[in-house]
Design a protein around this nucleic acid. Structure first.
Length: 465
RNA sequence: CGGGCUGUGGCGCAGCUUGGUAGCGCGCUUGACUGGGGGUCAAGAGGUCCCGGGUUCAAAUCCCGGCAGCCCGACCA
């Protein structure tokens, strides 16, 4: 069990997934190295997101890393929200720059500068752009994977003809891209809701969020989708000629998820033996471990792997028999590989191989010929067992409360649900002093709450990473 | 910017109170025995004890001054 506060991340986390390793000459505080295995997981997350983003009509593009400082100043709320955490470049080519440039903390400004050139007519809308890149935010308190100085992410930026269209698109991304990947692929249940005014993104009119409970009861914001209104459109002059021939400002959205999702995977599913990956996200779904290459174990293992691969399973053989058996399976457990198949002389003597689930530790003996048909079913079972396990943990850790004091109390160990009417902005401020924040507003039934319809909303409050 | 703490082989640490030959675990090298949950034994390699000054016959240890990092609050994908 990961413990609050101290987790940052247990040792296995750093060994397996990421570590703020230091470069020669000294690293920048809060930066991190993503090791190959962690990056392989990230690549799978990327692929799942990317295909859904494209299905939602957005196209990938790339914009400059360096943004003139003056761009960031154009949108008042935006600059106010970001200025303390900007990394500013003052020199280039051996001399001081006339105008400093900032390393992007997010790309609203530079992308909108281009949008103003790209949008002329209603025929150019909607304009749906996504960018995969790194960004830098000089956070006061960096935290490995969860809030690092530099991180990798995807940021979407769109422009629409109407507010309704923009809102619908922001919500579509939330539901069809983020929620789907987090819940159906990563196996992490999320609450989808709206941020309070206090918590919303600088420059946005409405911020929607996906919030998850980690295994220690704390909350993690896994992704956001913002309605930007017309603020940036006004600041950057993004106008179009409507069908009626009038000149109008576009309505915009932006949305992003980051390598924080790697942190979420670890903290939502990890246990004392290491990572546990849901089968759909695992770079290796099945590892076939040759215990000792005797009595035909090696050939049986490689046959198993090739038939699994042929069946579309991401399977790998571990034939490193020169290394100790215990060491090897510990390593696979650390990596969170969902299924381990052990092939050794002892198994073969009984005409079986041992199949072990990482999620539950459950072990069963199967005839080699039965493995190929059993594995996909087992992987599905693991996928849904991990999701429902996390879901019941969240439900068990969530309390319905009727007062601010009770909310503060309940949020020490999990989530608390409290009517927004009861909490209000004053209650929100008071909770913050106890380290508890409003994670999101949801309807009584968990549905989305529109702006201005807070009276019946429920605030979900928790301590957060 | 406030409050606490730590700097000692590659990594993690003990030693400091009460100065006296620099230690342990992990890792690494070599060999043997092992081999179904990070194996055992043996032999090795590896350190300007963060930096500078002071006290002393003698400083990792005591004193002064720096520097660096970590943790707790304000920031956040």
């Amino acid at each position: 069990m990961l413990t609050p506060r101290s987790v940052d991340f247990p040792k296995w986390y750093q060994d397996v997934v990421a570590k703020a390793e230091l470069a020669e000459g000294g690293p920048v505080r809060g930066t991190q190295v993503i090791r190959p295995y962690g990056y392989a997981i990230w690549e799978r997350i990327q692929a799942e997101l990317d295909s859904r983003i494209k299905a939602a009509g957005a196209k990938n593009a790339y914009f400059p890393l360096l943004i003139p400082q003056s761009y960031l100043i154009r949108e008042a709320d935006h600059v106010e929200g970001f200025s303390p955490e900007l990394a500013v470049v003052t020199h280039g080519g051996g001399k001081a720059l006339e105008e400093p440039v900032v390393i992007r903390p997010t790309s609203e400004t530079i992308i909108n500068a281009y949008f103003s050139k790209w949008v002329n007519s209603y025929r150019d809308l909607p304009l749906l752009i996504n960018q995969w890149c790194n960004v830098v935010r000089w956070e006061m308190r960096p935290r490995l994977l969860l809030r690092s100085t530099e991180f990798l992410w995807q940021e979407g930026h769109t422009a629409h003809a109407t507010e309704a269209e923009a809102r619908a698109y922001a919500l579509r991304i939330l539901a069809e891209v983020y929620r789907e990947v987090m819940v159906d692929v990563l196996g992490i249940p999320v609450l989808v809701g709206r941020k309070t005014e206090r918590e919303r993104f600088p420059g946005a009119t409405t911020t929607w969020t996906c919030e998850a409970m980690m295994s220690d009861g704390k909350a993690l914001q896994m992704g956001t989708s913002h309605e930007l209104g017309q603020g940036f459109a006004r600041a950057f002059g993004i106008e179009f000629s409507s069908e009626a021939g009038t000149s109008e400002l576009v309505w915009q959205t932006s949305w992003g998820v980051s390598t924080r999702l790697l942190g979420a995977l670890i903290m939502a599913h990890g246990d004392d033996a290491g990572l546990r990956l849901a089968p759909r996200i695992a770079p290796v779904q099945v590892v076939v471990v040759v215990v000792r290459d005797e009595d035909g174990a090696g050939p049986v293992a490689s046959e198993l792997v090739s038939s699994l691969v042929g069946a579309g399973v991401r399977a790998e053989a571990d034939v490193r028999v020169e290394s100790s058996y215990g060491r090897r399976i510990t390593e696979w457990e650390l990596k969170g590989v969902p299924l381990r198949i052990e092939v050794g002389p002892r198994d073969l003597a009984s005409g079986t191989v041992a199949v072990v689930r990482r999620d539950s530790g459950e072990k069963l003996a199967l005839a080699p010929g039965a493995v190929c048909s059993a594995v996909p079913r087992l992987l599905d079972e693991i996928q849904s067992a991990m999701l429902s396990g996390a879901l019941s943990a969240r439900e068990a850790g969530t309390a319905d409360v009727a007062s601010v004091a009770e909310a503060a109390e309940a949020a020490q160990s999990g989530f608390a649900r409290i009517a927004w009417r009861v909490l209000g902005v004053d209650g929100e401020a008071s909770l913050l002093r106890d380290g508890v924040s409003v994670r999101c507003l949801v309807g009584q039934d968990g549905a989305l709450v529109a702006l201005g319809a807070e009276d019946d909303a429920v605030a979900v409050v928790a301590r957060a990473y």
